[in-house]
Design a protein around this nucleic acid. Sequence first.
RNA 1: AGGGGCGUAGCCAAGUGGUAAGGCAACGGACUUUGACUCCGUCAUUCGUAGGUUCGAACCCUGCCGCCCCUG
Length: 369
Amino acid sequence: MVTNNSGKKGKVVVAMSGGVDSSVAAALLLEEGYEVIGITMQIWQPDEEEDERNGGCCSLTAVNDARRVADRLGIPYYVMNFQDLFAEKVIDYFTEEYLQGRTPNPCIACNRYIKFESLFQKAMGLGADYIATGHYVKNIYDQERGRYLLYKAEDMTKDQSYALYTMTQEQLARTLFPLGNYTKTVIRQKAAELGLLVADKPDSQEICFVTDNDYKRFLRQRVEPDRIKPGNFLNTQGEIIGRHEGLAYYTVGQRKGLGLALGYPAYVVALDPEKNAVIVGRDEEVFQQGLYAEDHNFIAFPELTEPVEVEAKIRYSAIPAPAVISPEADGRVKVIFQDKQRAITPGQAVVYYQGDLVVGGGTISEVIF
RNA sequence: AGGGGCGUAGCCAAGUGGUAAGGCAACGGACUUUGACUCCGUCAUUCGUAGGUUCGAACCCUGCCGCCCCUG
């Protein structure tokens, strides 16, 4: 059985969401001999009614679940308030990006600014040697390169390396990912063996602060109406083919919700903030050869100085595709794919891999048509 | 006004006497720690309307309504 020994291997703060993964992560670290402290980040204050159902990562049930697990494991447990920071770095970013005709990835922003920046600092301030999360990903120190490297998880279906490409060497040096070598199935079994009540808790999904999975409604409620203006749907020839409700409600590659009966499936090819237009086309018109990305972080090496062959991943659920990345004079990175990719979307992250190794990544700023 | 054509679901559209294809859109579900994509399911007791012929009509006939084209 798990016992809290004196932490021969160091003190680690585990970010506990109340879910299976972070709960088992804490348990595994305990077994390995770390001194474990559980912390739940309170990041979002849901409207009374919209909460609780499935227990978002910040709902009361989440905190209660996490606290129970901590009790069960016999570790200290605290709740820390990150609501203001989350509102700024994640929610504001999320809405502003949509308003500008880009498509944000809030999970990446949360990992970057909340978990691995703010929580990280507070943990270090508490005298912790490490921070740990329930992400499915591997963090390994490479002697030859003298760098900490990030690798895809053993369980490829659960791999979350895409959402962690922003991690710096300083962060990686003091971060533990106990789940990297396990499959989700094993983790659930482990939770059951430990007698954790969260063993059968469903996987979380969707955006944690958009509990009904309707981000359009979320924007409608939070943004001043005059910031979302209706405009024209244009075909790729520039002809007006209909009216849209506002750029913020559309994203590249989208099919549903356009309301355009053209006889063939119509997809959003691009958003044009200049004209406040949504460009629509056929399926084949949404495939593009490359992109420019900015705001990079490289993990496998300090910086990109010459063209490198990689497999680039354009969205969370994409299969990495062969591409060549090369540095541009303006600091951006040019990514040219071997084969055209579907719905390359400004605002989304592009993460570069070499096999299981995360080379680095950036934010897509422009699509090369 | 005269001549011709058309009127099938939200859009396009097949069906010309035997009891309403299909596509698009929409809606519902599955999938999913981002938005999307994808997949599965649902979607006209009724064919502009009123009569008539027929065992039986969206399909044939007649009136009316609406729209389009041509002529003057």
